[in-house]
Design a protein around this nucleic acid. Structure first.
Length: 113
DNA sequence: GAGGTGACTGCGA
DNA sequence: CTCGCAGCCACCT
């Protein structure tokens, strides 16, 4: 149960994000049941660079599709480069057609309904 | 053990 | 569209 830290749970979900798609911190938080604690998701990503296997943090953005965490990459511009590599267009630190590439774990993973 | 922090979100103006 | 305010809670010092 609590064997896996909140961090690990976040990493697992992020790694399930298919290439060319993105999701929001709130979506992940909601999937983990900590909907009200979207901040914790972002906080967990703080160690994403140290996680193993690596976490595609570039596929995680805020609710506006804005690359809020780009400055946590090294170098910062790496985030949009990785996204562009996967076919996600980024303009002015924001994802173009965000709705089209949005990947909601609560929908894609919880196929109950 | 207590306090501060923050890769967020929703709502009101 | 943008800006500001408050709530949220696991992790770190």
């Amino acid at each position: 149960m609590d064997r896996a830290s909140f961090y690990d749970q976040v990493y697992q979900v992020v790694r399930l994000i298919p290439a060319g798609r993105v999701t929001s911190y709130g979506a992940i938080a909601a999937y983990l049941g900590t909907k009200g604690s979207s901040r914790m998701v972002g906080y967990a990503m703080n160690n994403s660079g140290l996680a193993d296997p690596p976490v595609p943090a570039q596929r995680v953005v805020n609710r506006n599709g804005l690359l809020t965490g780009k400055f946590h990459f090294n170098p910062p511009e790496l985030m949009e480069q990785l996204l562009a590599q996967e076919g996600v267009e980024v303009k002015d630190d924001r994802i173009i057609n965000f709705k089209s590439v949005f990947w909601d774990p609560t929908v894609e993973l919880d196929l109950e309904k």
